[in-house]
Design a binder for these strands. Structure first.
Lengths: 209, 209
DNA sequence: GCCACTGTGGACCTGCTGGTCCATTTTACG
DNA sequence: CGTAAAATGGACCAGCAGGTCCACAGTGGC
């Protein structure tokens, strides 16, 4: 059973599977080829479904499907950073920060141009008010996790307590986002690494740890 | 006289003016509404031209026009940062860096979502191999200007000589780019400012100046 | 003032894309 | 089983975007 907008539809196991297949296929197609150029027919072909199925599971049409894809990608972005980044505040040692940094960089090195974050922020996120809200939430949640990490480090005397934790978290997000955007344009992770490393290294300059 | 691809066409003064009007109108339209949703008809309406004119000046069709727009925007991005950033290496004092930072932030505050950089990197830049080369060149030129600034500061003993100047420049570009991308998604310049300020402040921590 | 070339207008064509519709098959469940 | 609801297949439609074409007007050099 799933609710979309005002209507509620019952889904059988088979139906749920099909719906999932469509969303994931659409997400993959969009990551590979961009949202702008991906058509419903591409998705249909990739997921071995018919037109009617797409509109059956997403009565709102393409917009609704793309919103579902955006939600999936937003989830994936946070998941990818687990367990470095969770409610328990695992970013509590320099090693943890380094691990997080490595996880981010390695992931984008492997994925190259096809990254959820880039697609979400630069293509899906701006499409509709609903998807804008979604990206806003993602950003807020992500930033709050990083902020908690900074606060934790400050609490342990490992980072300068004079730093504005929230602002620092925002800077880190911008660094990742900028690195990813450049990656998508050039195919190189150099900027991503430079931005993350520079910021982290300078954060660590507070003491000798 | 203008060369496009293999063909060369002579332009009268009137022709050159029309061509310019089309490119600039297209650029403005795209900045406001995004490249994905801007149609030739929109451009036609805005620039008071006919279909045949667009194809007369851009025989390659939409791709060629968008490439011209990308080139225009790339130029504008560097121009916007003049005279902070030029071949003479004006980034030679902390005040100059602060001025540059202010120029960047103020510009995007005023422009809001409609920024050349964002559109170029996230929409135009990925369209064709030609536009990819173009964004690559922009990035290289920009980074080299910033790198010269860092080197200059290092030479004067104002920045840590141990820093890799090129890497630092890359980090700054990623910071701006990330800030802009977030700006386009959320409408807020908070991340842009946080990223720039954090990076610059930490760069300045080397000495007390 | 003539002639060739450039500039302009706009009708028209075509393919693609999102979206609709309905007939048919499959599933859930009493 | 039997039936209602869910799932599926795919033909069909309408609009729109990019692109072509041709007729005509404007311009510039000789």
């Amino acid at each position: 059973m799933i609710t979309s907008g005002t209507t509620t539809v019952r889904l059988t196991a088979k139906g749920a599977a099909t719906r999932l297949r469509i969303v994931e296929g659409a997400a993959a197609e969009i990551r590979e080829r961009g949202a702008a150029t991906t058509t419903l027919d591409d998705i249909r072909a990739r997921t071995a479904t018919s037109k009617s199925q797409i509109f059956h599971y997403f009565p709102g049409g393409k917009d609704e499907l793309l919103l579902a894809v955006a939600a999936l990608e937003a989830e994936r972005i946070l998941e990818d950073q687990q367990p470095h980044l969770d409610d328990l505040g695992r970013l509590d040692t320099w090693q943890a920060w380094r691990d997080w940094r490595d996880a981010v960089v390695r992931r984008y090195e492997r994925q190259g141009v096809n990254c959820p974050l880039g697609v979400l922020m630069t293509e899906l996120g701006r499409r509709t008010p609903a998807s804008q809200r979604l990206t806003g939430q993602l950003l807020a949640q992500w930033q709050s996790a990083l902020r908690d990490g900074v606060r934790c480090m400050q609490g342990s005397g490992l980072m300068d307590p004079a730093l504005d934790a929230d602002r620092t978290a925002a800077a880190l997000i911008a660094a990742v986002q900028g690195g990813v955007t450049v990656l998508m344009a050039t195919g190189s992770t150099a900027h991503l690494e430079a931005a993350l490393d520079t910021t982290l290294e300078l954060l660590g300059r507070f003491d000798a740890e």
